[in-house]
Simulated assay, not measured.
Amino acid sequence: MPTLLLNLRNVPEDEADEVRSLLEGHDIDYYETKPSLWGVSGGGLWLPDDRQAAVAKAHLASYQAQRGERMRRERAEAIAQGRAPSAWSAFREDPLRALATVLGILLMLGLATLPFLFFTRG
C-alpha cells in the first residue's frame, strides 16, 4: 500500500529537490504526484512499498532536523547583517500592497466591531 512520505503543499522547491536526492541517494523507490489544477491537492512524494517507509521516514526526520538548524542559523545571520525581511522592508518594496493590506485589516476590524458599537446601547 502506498505511503505518503511528504506532502508538497507549501514546500520550497529547493527542499523538495533535496528530499528527492536524499531518497535517490539511499536507493529508496518513490513516485511523485503533482498539485491538482484547482489547488485541492498540493502534490506529494509517495513510497510504493511499505517496507521502505520506516527507513525513509528516519532519513527524512534526520534531514529535516539538519535543515531546520541550517535555516535557523541562516535566519540569525541575516538578522545580524540586517538582510532579514521585515515589515518595513516589505513596505519599501511594495508600498501600495502594504497600504492596501493595512486598510483591509482596518476595514475588517471596523466591520467586526460595528455590531457592538451600534447594537449594545439598548
Rank of each mutant, 00 (worst) to 15 (best):
P85H: 08
F91T: 04
A80D: 12
A98K: 05
L107P: 01
G82P: 01
R83C: 00
Q81E: 11
R92S: 02
A112E: 09
A98N: 01
E93T: 09
Q81L: 11
A90Y: 12
R92Y: 03
T113F: 13
S89A: 12
L103R: 04
R83Y: 03
R97V: 07
A87S: 04
A100G: 05
A90T: 05
R83S: 00
P95V: 07
L96M: 15
E93M: 06
L111A: 14
L107D: 06
P95L: 13
W88I: 06
I105E: 03
R83I: 00
A90P: 04
F91L: 11
A87D: 11
L106C: 08
G82S: 05
A84S: 02
G110E: 14
A78Y: 04
T101H: 14
T101C: 13
L107I: 12
T113W: 09
M108E: 09
F91C: 01
A98I: 00
A98L: 00
A84I: 02
A80E: 11
A87Q: 12
A78F: 06
A90R: 11
A84N: 02
T101I: 12
A112I: 13
L99K: 13
D94G: 10
T101K: 15
L107N: 08
R83H: 06
G82R: 03
A78H: 01
E93C: 06
A90C: 09
W88E: 14
F91D: 04
L96F: 13
A98P: 01
P85T: 05
R92N: 10
G110A: 15
A112F: 12
I105D: 08
G104Q: 04
Q81K: 11
T113P: 01
M108G: 02
P95S: 13
S86W: 10
A84M: 03
F91H: 06
A84E: 10
A78V: 01
R92I: 05
F91S: 00
M108D: 02
R83Q: 05
G82E: 08
